[in-house]
Simulated scan of single mutants.
Amino acid sequence: MADLKTNPHQLTITSSQIQDIYMSLEQEIFKLIANRLDTKGITSDNVLTWQIKMLNELHLVNEATIKLLAEATGLAKEAINKLFIDQGLKVYDESIADISKGNANPVIKPDIDQVLSGYAKQTFLDIKNTVNQTLVSANYGEKSITTDMYQQIIKETTGSVIAGTKTPERALADTIYKWRDKGIKPVLVDKGGNEWGLEGYVRTVVSTTSNRAFQSVRDTAAHDNGIRTFVMSSHPASREACAPIQGKLVTDRRKSFTDKETGEYFESLYNHGYGTPGGTFGINCTHIKWPYIPGVNTNNQPQYDRQESVSNGKIQQKQRALERRVREEKRKLELAKELDDEQGILKYRLSVRKYQSAVKKIVNDNNFLGRDYAREKIY
């Protein structure tokens, strides 16, 4: 196998930059609401007047959200093109270079950049259309998640002040933190009735589609040159569908077979859910398969115990959950600072440290894990 020039970690960073744009957008919307809902001078006697005034400014929130969304959309389009087209062309060139080891004159697809542009365009439009329709209303008076959230925060804050259970400042802060916990959802409700928040939706669309696009150009390079055999990457942490065949020789033919000349066995990917969301190379799968020419290439992928890799995969999922929690607590700390809420600042600063310590412990306890501080940052 040729040495890979495309660093998988770099691809992950580039992919994460797109997610970060929308995570920042979500945070900016909460900060926008926190700034607009000033409770200074509010008492139980005049809180209803405050409520009416704030509700009448709903159109200003919608207008400000549209501006934030326009900026995020422009940044996202540039980042998506960089990921899919620039990185995708590198992946294709590397596949052709690998194939040329067994074929001095490999077939090269002249319009591969158009194929990648198609993936980039579709990904951008999917995210843009879904997020835009969710966050803002095209016409004043129509419901959107942002306007509904703004209205509910005002009403819940007013209710707490009238009840006399909290000061106006405490009521507003606690209500905003509660909605920050929920996040902006549902951005999408899938066929199973599951609600997807903004972070989960963008992360899944970008990671799954980019993995599919990169694998598509590898497959194109292979198929154009009559190759239907591959070597699959291997990870110390794997999900159930991929664990039995990771690091092995595989084929995208319907049936497994043994090469007559080399005696090498190629397992059919279709025996492991290939082409289905939960199968190998399905949603959120990060495995790679490279073109493999029997008698020319060698399989140098590390081999991992099947059950151990599945068990490791579950531990890695726990690490990812803790990393997400670190980011969530950091966002709430940002909001606490925006609200000048000393109680909240202390609470969430301690909470950030708590979950950072939990990440450190799980990494120290499992030598196959690594600490990636980029996964704990907010932008």
Rank of each mutant, 00 (worst) to 15 (best):
N211L: 04
N211T: 13
D113S: 15
N35R: 07
A241N: 03
Y265C: 01
I21Q: 05
L333I: 11
K53D: 15
G118S: 02
V352D: 06
P291L: 02
Y201Q: 11
A237Q: 05
D372V: 13
S210H: 08
D45K: 12
Q307Y: 01
S233F: 00
E342W: 02
L83M: 10
T123I: 11
C242E: 09
R349E: 14
S234Y: 01
R212Y: 05
L48S: 15
R320Q: 08
V206E: 13
D93Q: 15
I245V: 15
L11G: 01
D113E: 15
T65S: 13
Y373P: 00
T262G: 04
A321T: 14
R324P: 04
N271W: 02
F230Q: 00
E156V: 13
E195P: 12
E199M: 10
K337R: 12
K155T: 11
E308W: 01
P236L: 00
I33Y: 00
S44T: 12
D113R: 14
T276R: 14
G282Q: 03
I288V: 11
K255Y: 14
N364I: 07
D224P: 09
K40G: 11
G247Y: 01
T209A: 09
G41R: 03
V161Q: 01
A97D: 15
R320T: 05
Q307R: 02
D219H: 06
K121F: 05
S160G: 04
T123E: 06
N366R: 03
L333H: 13
E267D: 12
D3V: 11
L198C: 09
L125K: 14
A104F: 02
M54E: 08
T73S: 15
K128T: 00
R36L: 00
V187Q: 10
V363A: 03
R228C: 02
A221M: 01
L48I: 13
N46R: 05
D365H: 01
P186C: 10
Y119A: 00
G273P: 08
T14W: 07
L369V: 10
